[in-house]
Amino acid sequence: MLKRDTTFKVIMLLPLVFLTGYFLILVGSQSAFFSLDDFLAQLGQQDIRSAIALSLIAATTSTVIAIVLAIPTAYALARIEFPGKRLLDTFIDLPMVLTPIALGTLILMSWNTAIGRLLSDIGLTLPFTLAGVILAQFTVIVAISVRMLKATFEQIDQRQEQVARLLGCSAFSSFLQITLPLAKRGILAAIILTWARAIGEFGATVMVAGTAKGQTATLPSSIYLAMSMADLPKAVTLVVILIGISLLVLFGLRMVTESKR
């Protein structure tokens, strides 16, 4: 029995070892092009600092907007019966199957419609603006949030909400006092995943907002620009910064999630 368990565990652990090794090779291969002096010097450059700030602001804002909209949407899809629900459920998934480039094209084209022109007229323009970056990232990540949160709400025993109603809660109060606290871990997981996806977003962002240095160049688009100009030290510095920020935030959020269990 023990031997069988050991074999089973080894079989399950081997892919983990392989994946860890593979990622270490990817990260470690940057060391040939990395020097601390270069890194510190690059950090002092205005365009890099601006890319870091823009990435953090845009990813956080788009994640907040996506989660705020995804929570009720996912709850409605998980709990409320209405005509055309299956169709809507499938439609909401569309951004997950389209490539980011195609999504970016859709966003740009939608600004040529009456609504788009109206928004442009009131000052909400997309090319070379922070709003363009945020909208591109939001469009890419919102479907992921909805999908994850719908699964979370479906896992919560509806009986708990019903008992809360019979103990005196209104539907909204039951949602706030029972459903949301029980969905906390799922919501945090959705935040982690969507934020990570947003900060790494490239295709739709470039299509919609371009890569204007100091204006709409996020960390991924700055990496692309550096590589296209064969500026390897800068590209590696940006990669290391992106890895560092991502790991820090993901690890921090994971620690919060684990400690609240």
């Binding site: 708990q160 019903q162 008992v163 029972i178």
Partner: peptide, 19 residues
């Protein structure tokens, strides 16, 4: 609505609030 009926309920799976 359920909360206005003043009925208490003990379901089969109890549905205690784990949080």
């Amino acid at each position: 609505t359920p909360e206005k009926r003043q009925i208490s309920y003990l379901p089969q799976d109890l549905a205690l609030f784990p949080h």
